[in-house]
C-alpha cells in the first residue's frame, strides 16, 4: 500500500498545530462506538460496537445498505455528531470533551466534506464557495486567493470562478465542492455518496478525481452503497444493522435480508 505524505502547501502553519504527523500514523481511531437515537421512546441503535482505524494516506470506503449506519458513522467521524458511547480519538486526541467551537475549528482545518447533494451556496460565486472554509481562519487575503486558485485548478474548474453554481452542470458543481474540501488542506476528505446525484459519466469523472487525489497522498473516507465505486478504495468497511461485518458476512446478511423480504 502506498503510504506517503503529500503536503499541498507546506507553508500552512495552522493546520498541523506545529506538530508533524508521520506517514502511516493513525489519524482516526474508534473503539466501541455506539450511537443510539431516541424517538418517541423507541431506542434505535444506529451504531453498535464499532471499531475503526484510519491511517494517514488511506482510501477507505464505508459500504452497506441504506439504514446500515454509514452516514451516521461518517457524521461522527466528521464531528458533526457525537457517539452515545465509546472512544473516538482524532489524531490521538479525544474529541468527546471538545466544545462546539473547538469542534468547528477541527472541522474547518482537518476535515474536508464532500456531500452527495454538493451543498454549494447559490448566492456565492464558484470562487466564493471554495473560499468559504478559509474565511473562518485567520489567513491573509493573498494566501487565501492562492489556495482557492490552486484548489480550483486541481479540479479543473479554474475558468469558471465568476459563475454561480446554478450556471454549472451537476458534475461541475461536484468538482467545485471537491475544490472547497481541498482548499482547506485537510487531513482527511469525507465523501458522503459523492456520486449519488450524478449521471454515470460525471460520476466516473468524480471517482477518477478522488483516485488521483489519493495517489497524490490524500486520506479519503467515502460512504457509498454502489459496489462499483467502492472498488476505487483500498479498503472497505462493511456495515450491517449498525455493526461492522466482514465482506462475506455482509454478503450473507444481504442475501438473508433479501430472502426475508422475498418470503
Amino acid at each position: 500500500m502506498p503510504r506517503k505524505t503529500l503536503r499541498l502547501d507546506s507553508r500552512d502553519r495552522n493546520t498541523k498545530r506545529g506538530e508533524m504527523t508521520a506517514a502511516g500514523d493513525v489519524l482516526i481511531s474508534m473503539k466501541d462506538i455506539e450511537r443510539v437515537f431516541y424517538t418517541d421512546e423507541v431506542e434505535t441503535h444506529a451504531l453498535s460496537d464499532v471499531d475503526l482505524e484510519i491511517r494517514k494516506g488511506e482510501y477507505v470506503s464505508i459500504e452497506g445498505p441504506s439504514g446500515s449506519g454509514k452516514s451516521t458513522l461518517l457524521s461522527i467521524i466528521g464531528l458533526l455528531d457525537s457517539p452515545s458511547d465509546g472512544q473516538y480519538l482524532f489524531k490521538r486526541e479525544a474529541v468527546e470533551t471538545l466544545n462546539i467551537s473547538q469542534r468547528a475549528v477541527i472541522r474547518n482545518r482537518e476535515i474536508g466534506f464532500i456531500f452527495q447533494s454538493f451543498n454549494l451556496i447559490g448566492d456565492l460565486t464558484v470562487y466564493e464557495n471554495v473560499e468559504l472554509p478559509l474565511t473562518y481562519r485567520a489567513m491573509s487575503g493573498s494566501e487565501r486567493k492562492q489556495r482557492v486558485q490552486q484548489a480550483l485548478e486541481r479540479v479543473g474548474i479554474s475558468h469558471r470562478t465568476r459563475h454561480y453554481p446554478s450556471q454549472l452542470s451537476g458534475g461541475q458543481q461536484q468538482r467545485v465542492a471537491v475544490a472547497r474540501a481541498l482548499a482547506g488542506n485537510p487531513s482527511i476528505l469525507l465523501a458522503d455518496e459523492p456520486t449519488g446525484n450524478l449521471d454515470s459519466q460525471n460520476a466516473n469523472a468524480v471517482m477518477e478525481l478522488l483516485g488521483e487525489l489519493h495517489r497524490e497522498g490524500a486520506t479519503i473516507c467515502m460512504v457509498t452503497h454502489d459496489p462499483r465505486f467502492a472498488q476505487h478504495a483500498e479498503r472497505g468497511i462493511h456495515l450491517f444493522d449498525g455493526r461492522v461485518v466482514t465482506k462475506s458476512e455482509a454478503a450473507k446478511s444481504m442475501a438473508d435480508s433479501a430472502a426475508n423480504r422475498t418470503f
Binding site: I100, S101, A104, R107, N108, F113, I121, P133, G184
Partner: peptide
C-alpha cells in the same frame, strides 16, 4: 453547511 465547513457559533 457553514457549520460543517467549520464556522464557529
Amino acid at each position: 453547511l457553514r457549520m460543517a465547513l467549520g464556522a464557529t457559533p
